Amino acid sequence: MILNAPTQAWLTRIAALGRPEYDDFATERERRLVESAQLSDGFVGALPGGITVREHRVGDGLLVREVRGQAADGPLPAYLLLHGGAFWHGSATESVNMVIAANRALQAGVAVFLADYRLAPEFPCPAAIDDTIEVLRWLQQEAGTLDLDPSCLLLGGISAGANIATAAAARVTGEGLIAGLVLEVPAVDLRPDGSWDERFAAINGLDSTEDMTRLYAGGLPADHPDISPVLVDVTAFPATHIVTAEYDPLRGGGEILATRLREAGVRVTATRHLGALHGSLGLTGADPIAQAWQDDVSSALRRLVVATGA
């Protein structure tokens, strides 16, 4: 395994922060947000200028943060992006997610929406899937008010967020709601006998899929399509782009899903980023590999927008 200098420095910073024991999930979530802010310094890059940020409340108060370029002329394509965090942590307001969203809004000319979906274990599956579908329908229904193009609604997710996005897409495929799907390092195969690659577990700080399943599944088996959406019916999926990382124990699930989509006749593109870890996107401000990943996704978003005629 060959890691470049920025990745090695990032891993050293993570090791220095440590992983203390914690008493409850709420406390640990707060600690992770602080840690994320500390990791952002020198690695993620600054929040770019020229953006407008607004906050919305959907349904029973679910926070949705909107990021768009100030110079962009509407109505804009909408891109709902689901953050990662192993189903139990992460936030729409986290600095790394804001920088990622802002850069994509500027580079792809889309309005990015970050949703604070409900987290496990307090809210196990299918709560996050239900939240995602609720936000998708809200974006469609409020397109006029939000200055959006209702014919170009894109859905994406990172890691656990890509799992949720895939499961949500499977539920609404017959509605024509989603015009395109972008899945980054998707944690879509949580089966204990699935595609997990143990060789890359330790370097990523990932123990196994069992911990994620235990927290998220809510009693469902790991081979249920809502838990391992690599198994969903993909025949009516929208055009999809999948990003995987070379040194990611979850890489196999994303690549299996890409193959299944291709075999089903879905228009699919896929990129394996060489030298990347599962979380390398968090180094966008310091690492050429992460910058290439970000550029890859922005290019995919632009292609999906063009394909809809928006």
Rank of each mutant, 00 (worst) to 15 (best):
L3C: 05
S151Y: 01
Y247N: 00
I129F: 11
G285H: 05
P121N: 01
F25G: 10
A9V: 01
E30K: 12
E30C: 02
G253Y: 06
I51L: 12
T27C: 12
T7L: 14
A105E: 02
E134M: 09
I100V: 14
G69Y: 01
T27H: 09
D295T: 15
G205S: 07
L3Y: 08
E30I: 01
P20C: 13
R191I: 05
E134S: 15
A167S: 08
L33M: 08
A165I: 09
L215E: 10
A258E: 02
L190I: 08
W88S: 07
L250Y: 09
V268I: 10
L283R: 14
T213F: 08
V58D: 05
A9D: 15
L274M: 07
G157Y: 01
A37R: 09
G275C: 02
A105S: 14
R260S: 03
T271W: 10
R19V: 06
R19L: 10
A236G: 01
V112C: 05
V172P: 07
D73R: 07
E198S: 14
P75H: 00
T209R: 06
P20A: 08
A16R: 08
D223K: 02
H83C: 00
H56V: 12
A15P: 06
T12D: 15
V268G: 12
V305A: 06
A9H: 11
R262S: 14
P225D: 08
A9L: 12
E175Q: 14
A71H: 08
W138C: 07
A37K: 02
Q8Y: 03
A120K: 01
L181R: 10
D207T: 12
Q294R: 13
L231V: 06
R214L: 14
T213H: 15
E55Y: 00
S159D: 12
A292T: 13
S36P: 04
F113E: 04
Q140N: 09
G161H: 09
S159A: 14
T166I: 03
G156K: 05
A46E: 14
P186T: 11
W293A: 14
R68W: 04
L304W: 00
G218C: 11
G285I: 12
T284D: 07
A111L: 09
R199K: 11
A5D: 14
R118L: 11
D60G: 11
V230Q: 04
R32F: 06
L155A: 08
L257D: 00
V182K: 00
D60L: 05
I133P: 10
V243R: 00
I14N: 00
I203N: 02
H241I: 00
G69P: 11
